[in-house]
Amino acid sequence: MLSSTAKNLYWLARYIERAENTARILEATNRIALLTRGRPQGGAEWLSVTGIYGCEMALRERHANPGLEELMHFMAFDEHNPSSIYCGVRAARNNARAERNNLTTDVWENLNGMWLELQSMARLGGPGGDWHGFLDWVKKQAQLVTGAAQSTLLRDEAFNFLALGNFIERGDSTARILDVKYHILLPKGEPVGGSIDYYHWSEILSCVSAFRIYRRVYASAIEPWRVAELMILRRDLPRSLHFCQRQVNFHLEELAEAFAARHEAHRLSGEIYSQLRYGRIELIFQNGLHEFLTDFIQRNGRLSDQIERDFLMK
């Protein structure tokens, strides 16, 4: 396998996962906007979504006074916004085309079909106001692609790179969702666990498809520290940081075995993993949740860079 193949597959998985996560975040944003409409202060909270991607400036450059519709369009269809679903799917599809002979027909056809349909929607200027239906569609399509990959691809070296991209991106996204939303939910100076907006928290859980799971696991009212625990430390929640990092670690181990070589990426990954594996939520809150999350995001980013150096740029 070529390094460029590994790199294309790694980023293909990241782009698809990112498109799905963006759809999840926009879904929550859309609902929060509907819920808070007409309430004082309820005005622009949904703009926080741009904070997740660090693209608020870019949005303001496009629209002097962006409303919800503009925001949705910017994040879904804007072809100059690298964080948009449109750009993500396009990039994923370009990578897939270059690696057509390293993918199965199932993966290619699902991804190509998704791209073609997205393109025709873009030509119509968007989903005609049906954002809910559209975002649902994006999620389903992305799941078709990842599902096809899971169920048809040969478990060779290449597959590990696809999986690494998938979970590195997912971990990053979960951490960002939690960080940005958490910030907004806690007015300055208010102690953790103070008055919270129930709807916001339930939306965060919905972002990671974990609203019902929270109830099952905790059988209690929604409390912020438990939401954080679920999303960070639960070993069994497929979008939690712990789960993602366990997968990353696993696939790096597979590569170590296949190549009979260990690299700095293995050390970095093990370090992050043990922190999540043995971490306690009380301690995380004690030292500051925001600090913990930004630290994770940075390390996860460093790990991704290291994976590039150890495998993809050789």
Binding site: L2, S3, S4, L255, F259, A261, K314
Partner: peptide, 28 residues
């Protein structure tokens, strides 16, 4: 390339060192 089971490479996948040509792979 597919039919023959060989790598399909672009210029950037190859490099020359000491007048020998190498392919970049994750193994090295």
């Amino acid at each position: 390339a597919d039919e023959m089971g060989i790598e399909l490479v672009e210029g950037s996948d190859l490099f020359v060192d000491e007048s020998r040509v190498y392919m970049r792979t994750p193994r090295g």
